[in-house]
Design a protein around this nucleic acid. Structure first.
Lengths: 200, 200
DNA sequence: ATCGACCTACCGTCCGGTAGGTTGGCGCAT
DNA sequence: ATGCGCCAACCTACCGGACGGTAGGTCGAT
């Protein structure tokens, strides 16, 4: 029995072939982007025929959209959880917790999150509304956090909150291009970043 | 200097259709990425037939490689020029000048630079050596600048220079996703960023 | 007469998607 | 307990079209 067949068997037993397809698609989309990643590739890696994908999804775009949204959601949920857990803690501690959560999720679900960034604009077609909504919701988390930190004096009040948000998110998301698990510890990176940003 | 490079130099000196093809390819690559952008599209936008592209370039990859490398070179040259012009100036002023030059070039040559980032990894094929070399050379500019600023005390000496470089470049390059000429002035963004980063 | 610049016509390959069949297990009436 | 209908899950075989690239011809300027 091949490894692929085994994958199918175990996934079917758990009733999770949908997740298996998405995991596989995320891995391929991460390295190949939208147009490079073909349904034949995904199907072969999963261990089924291409036509069988259409039993679970209506189109290629539906698969990609699910992967991209999961990528955003993983990060969103992690950061929200970290902020809830540090309610009432010093502002600097909360920023560091948020950065740590973002970087950890970004790195821990690398297939999904990298695919999400790489595929954000897929094709000439406009970005689906569900994708735009997921990203907007996550941006709001940071909008609120930065407002809170500025009010508390942990971030300089006279600086533009929008530009600070862009700077922080840009710096963190850039890590998908240079982060290697063996080279840095996520916690160290998060601490360096928050130290560099906090009012000194 | 290789014969191929010499051909390139002479063709560029004569100007004309080669630059027109690259400008067009850059514009299409910016919005479409590597696999979405087809030779038929490029040829049609230029106003010639697809086969005629092969009179100027040997393959699609050669066109894309030229665009990507130009994108990096535009930014590289602008930042080096800005640093030469501010030799001897206060460290903070030099950081601001470098950030301004980077953002201005990034935004001024949007087709090339955005294409350069979006297409960095094009296809499953390994990134061409010329592209990796161009990026490495530009990273060195920032490596040197950050070392200089840390030595002068303008940036905190105890922070990792690598992580600071990643943070700054990530924050700046993220601007291709949010910068709109009417919404911000490049100089304002540069000043906000450098103020946020400089030791206070 | 040469040659750069461009053309028309064509190649094999792969794409996303569709049509329609096979199989195997589960609920259910007998 | 057993035969049967059903349906999820998967299959083979095929479609039209677009892809990057090639062969070989035309044409005007030097």
């Amino acid at each position: 029995m091949s490894a692929a067949t085994d994958n199918v068997a175990r996934a079917a037993a758990r009733g999770g072939s949908r997740r298996l397809i998405l995991d596989t698609a995320a891995r391929l989309l991460r390295s190949g982007g939208y147009h490079q990643t073909t349904l034949r590739e995904i199907a072969e890696a999963v261990g089924i025929r291409k036509a069988s994908l259409y039993h679970h999804f209506a189109s290629k775009e539906e698969i990609v959209e699910a992967v991209v949204n999961d990528g955003v959601r993983f990060v969103h949920d992690a950061v929200v959880a970290a902020l809830e857990k540090t309610t009432g803690a010093p502002p600097g501690r909360r920023l560091e917790a948020a950065i740590t959560a973002h970087l950890t999720a970004l790195n821990g679900q690398r297939d999904y999150t990298t695919a999400s960034f790489r595929v954000f604009t897929f094709g000439a077609t406009p970005v689906p509304e569900s994708v735009r909504a997921a990203r907007r919701a996550y941006e709001d988390v940071w909008r609120n956090l930065i407002a809170e930190l500025q009010a508390a004096g942990a971030l300089p009040k006279e600086r533009s909150p929008d530009l600070m948000r862009y700077l922080i998110l840009g710096a963190m998301n850039g890590s998908i291009d240079w982060f290697r698990p063996g080279r840095f510890a996520t916690a160290d990176v998060a601490q360096e970043f928050s130290t560099l940003l906090l009012a000194r």
